[in-house]
Amino acid sequence: MNTEQLYEMLRKLQEPKGYFFNKDRQHVDRLLNSLLINKERYGYMACPCRLAVNDREWDRDIICPCVYREPDVKEFGRCYCGLYVSAEWNSGQITDQYVPERRPIEKILGPS
């Protein structure tokens, strides 16, 4: 699968749910490429902006779309990586701002 195929596949799945790709297509393509790298590396599309531990169960919360997308888009208009945004964010009604990490530190540090 290439980024173009992934783009179309995800767009059809996510737009009806109210999640749109960032209008910056270059940013989106770079992220989709990173998702394909992680798919190859781990066997699942781990969030490119977070460190995966190569354990699908542990990383389940950060398999894209991550579980933090919903609260992040609700609060900031975009997900942590800036892959998915709301319609309002894309139209400029919401100012872009830094999205802080919402994943619990225990999960970030990995299984001990």
Binding site: H27, R30, S34, I37, C49, L51, C81, G82
Partner: peptide, 9 residues
């Protein structure tokens, strides 16, 4: 950084 992270790049 992470090699896959666009904001890192």
């Amino acid at each position: 950084t992470l090699s896959t992270c666009i904001y890192c790049q």
